[in-house]
Simulated assay, not measured.
Amino acid sequence: MLNIARTPVARRALCQTRWNSTTTSTAPGGDTRLETIRRVLFEPVRREKTISLEGELLEQHETIERAWKLHRMRQREQRERSLELQFRAMNVAMNELEKTNDRLFKGALVKSRHITYPKQAKIPTETPSTQGWDYAYKAPEAITA
């Protein structure tokens, strides 16, 4: 029944059978919550008709789309290159650490249960001060020249 209810016709029919007995009057002062719920859940989303482009407008649209996809591809490739460089630098550092000090190398590989620095750092928030309001504050007097 779930798959059937996804078609607009079946959805309308289901909507009518479910809500016909429980809908409330829409008279002034009446409760319209069930009617609103019915509309939100069961009415199909009204969408504007898509614009069909022809000729030069279609060519312009396709050119813009290709340029956007090219831009996104270049961004993705740049991000992948950056991550690759970071990974290589990390591998070089780990190899150097392995050659230098075996104890530190093994310590770097172990995942600790203890919270590390980035997790301990206080996240900037826009919450009020913990001290509250300073009722004794006096505004500085303006200097008159």
Rank of each mutant, 00 (worst) to 15 (best):
E48A: 12
H61S: 15
K69A: 15
R72Q: 14
F87T: 14
R79S: 14
G30P: 01
V92L: 13
R74N: 09
K122R: 11
I123T: 11
P128E: 06
E80K: 11
I51C: 07
G55R: 01
L104T: 05
L109Q: 06
I115S: 09
E96P: 00
M94N: 07
I64Y: 12
P44D: 08
M94S: 11
E65N: 10
F87I: 10
G29N: 02
K122E: 12
F105T: 01
R81Y: 06
K69D: 08
S129N: 12
H114F: 09
A108W: 06
E56S: 12
P128W: 03
T32A: 04
E54S: 14
I51M: 07
T32P: 01
T116K: 06
E80G: 03
S129V: 06
E43N: 13
P128A: 09
E126C: 08
Q78G: 13
E35M: 04
P124L: 07
R113S: 08
M94E: 10
R72G: 02
E84M: 12
R39Q: 07
N91I: 08
R33M: 04
L41S: 02
L57S: 15
L34K: 09
R46L: 13
H71W: 11
H114W: 05
A93P: 00
L41V: 05
T116A: 10
L85K: 14
D31M: 04
V110K: 05
Q78H: 15
Q86A: 15
D31Q: 01
L70F: 11
Q86I: 04
E80W: 04
G29C: 03
A93T: 08
R103L: 08
E43M: 03
L58E: 13
R46V: 07
N101G: 02
E43G: 01
M94L: 14
Y117F: 10
E35H: 05
N91T: 08
R72P: 00
E84Q: 13
K122I: 08
F87V: 09
Q86R: 15
L104R: 07
W68Y: 12
Q75S: 13
R47W: 01
A108I: 02
R103S: 08
I64V: 15
E84P: 00
H114M: 07
G132E: 03
Q78S: 15
M90G: 13
E96Q: 09
P128M: 05
L58K: 14
Q75V: 06
R76Q: 10
V40Q: 05
L41R: 05
L58D: 06
E54N: 13
Q131H: 12
Y117P: 01
F42C: 02
P124R: 06
L70R: 13
E56T: 06
R74K: 14
R76L: 09
L97G: 01
T50C: 05
Q60R: 15
T63Q: 13
E48H: 06
A121K: 10
E56R: 10
L70C: 14
N101K: 03
E35T: 05
M73Q: 13
G30Q: 04
R38K: 12
I64P: 01
F42N: 00
P28E: 03
V45I: 10
A27P: 00
T63N: 10
T36I: 03
E77G: 00
P128L: 04
Q120P: 01
L57W: 07
W68C: 09
W68G: 03
R88E: 11
E62V: 04
